[in-house]
Design a protein around this nucleic acid. Structure first.
Length: 398
RNA sequence: GGGGAGGUGCCCGAGCGGUCAAUGGGAGCGGACUGUAAAUCCGUCGGCUACGCCUACGAAGGUUCAAAUCCUUCCCUCCCCA
């Protein structure tokens, strides 16, 4: 396999589209011949405070470029975030405050370098040039694009036909994003598959400004832990990169087998054929380790795995059990009251769990709703697979 | 500007004077089976030591022995015409 083939294989893994066809191969061939790395741009609007695994699909791809020696430009859309990308929206986005953007930018950049090599990443902010745009600059920019292609976009055309408002500035979003490419002159821009239109506008604008148009690589939007909808905080199906090791490990372990392969495809460079031959659980543990290590380090990953295996595979009692101290005004306490004190949302819920046979005290299943625990003792209380505490009933005068 | 429809539990969505804490589906939760997977099956899904009581059907009032269901006002969504 030649170096060109090797790079092409790594880089094209998982991606949805490479436009125009064959462009990347040509660019790579030239880059290798001349010894000049490709300049790759990817933009992120700091519209949310934290990033999740879904965002890291692009970052991982950028890291792959880096490892092959290419130049990565990470564009922070601090200016474009103020408008908000209208892509896929059925209505105008509310604008973000500068304050929120600034804060998000901080956390973003911190989290991004868990994946990217900071030494080899150029971070730029589009506020640096878009913030200085004059009206003349803007008019020049606008003169280089047409309304017609804007209206062919699915989201805009739906809104237009339905008579829903499209604010003029929403047309400006793709133009500004495209202008970023004019300002940075990348060889290739990487984006989510929902960004295809915006990325193509970048090509058109570069051409219009007399530059060599960038090629385009789009990546799929990662499915969330439900395996259906795209990963998103608002769907609650996400794995955040700042999540605690144990929680992250557990979430990965509960992915379906099929989804696990999808995550591996997009977020690792592992040989999927080989993974398929493995026991799915072993493979999943490896993936969980990989993610935890990526964001929290090797040691944390090992600890998370050990805790997981002990707790769920061997069903041992974890040693970091939450300790709960419950003041007990009498000689003993009604079990549902104890459960509520430990963290159950309500006594009704506690009684339901007892009735369902989910409650164990010191390893013994309790099915009697009227059960009471004596004050002064410490008990191992379990109320379903995810709720377990070490409860101490402290005798206290009421 | 004119006309019409509607706001119900986490979500979707029935109910249109009592038998409604409110059918059904989804999500969630628990149990069984497991690899804390998927699939499947069963159960549960406002609160309260409960064959009863309290709080709930956009908000506030009102009519009734009795209202999610009727009336009034208000708030908010959506659709059609111009």
């Amino acid at each position: 396999m030649t170096e060109l083939e090797r790079q092409l294989e790594i880089l094209s893994r998982g991606c949805v589209e490479l436009l125009p066809e064959g462009a990347l191969a040509e660019q790579l061939a030239l880059a290798l011949k001349v010894g000049r790395p490709l300049r790759v741009k990817a933009g992120f609007d700091p519209t949310a405070p934290d990033i999740h695994l879904g965002h890291t699909v692009l970052l991982y791809k950028l890291a792959q470029f880096q490892r092959l020696g290419h130049e990565v430009i990470l564009l922070i859309g601090d200016f474009t975030a103020r408008i908000g990308d209208p892509t896929g929206r059925s209505e105008t986005r509310p604008p973000l405050s500068e304050e929120a953007i600034r804060k998000n930018t901080e956390t973003y950049t911190a989290q991004v370098f868990k994946i990217l090599d900071p030494e080899r990443t150029r971070v730029v902010f589009n506020g640096d040039w878009l913030g200085r745009f004059t009206l003349v600059d803007l008019l020049t920019l606008c003169a280089k694009y047409n309304v017609a292609p804007m209206l062919t976009r699915d989201d805009f055309s739906k809104r237009y036909k339905a008579g829903h408002p499209i604010a003029i500035h929403e047309f400006l979003y793709p133009l500004m994003q495209g202008y970023d490419s004019v300002a940075l002159e990348p060889d290739l821009e990487l984006g989510g598959s929902d960004q295809t239109f915006n990325l193509l506008v970048g090509r058109d604008l570069m051409r219009a400004y007399g530059q060599k148009p960038q090629s385009i690589m789009t990546m799929p939007l990662l499915e969330g832990t439900d395996g259906v909808r795209k990963m998103s905080k608002s769907y609650g199906n996400y794995i955040g990169v700042t999540e605690a090791p144990d929680g992250m490990f557990g979430k990965v372990m509960s992915l379906s087998d099929e989804l696990m392969l999808r995550y591996m495809e997009l977020l690792t460079d592992w040989d999927l054929e080989r993974v398929r031959a493995e026991h799915p659980m072993a493979a999943k543990q490896r993936l969980a380790m990989e993610f935890v290590a990526r964001f929290h380090g090797r040691e944390a990953a090992e600890a998370a795995r050990d805790a997981f295996v002990a707790r769920f595979s061997k069903r041992e009692v974890p040693d970091d059990l939450p300790e709960v101290n419950v003041p007990c005004p009498q000689g003993d306490m009604w079990l549902p009251d104890v459960l509520v004190a430990a963290g159950m949302p309500s006594k009704s819920e506690a009684r339901r769990r007892i009735g369902a046979g989910a409650v164990y005290v010191d390893g013994e299943r309790v099915t009697d709703e009227q059960a009471r625990l004596a004050a002064g003792g410490t008990y191992l209380v379990k109320a379903g697979k995810r709720s377990m505490w070490r409860v101490t009933l402290t005798w206290a005068h009421g």
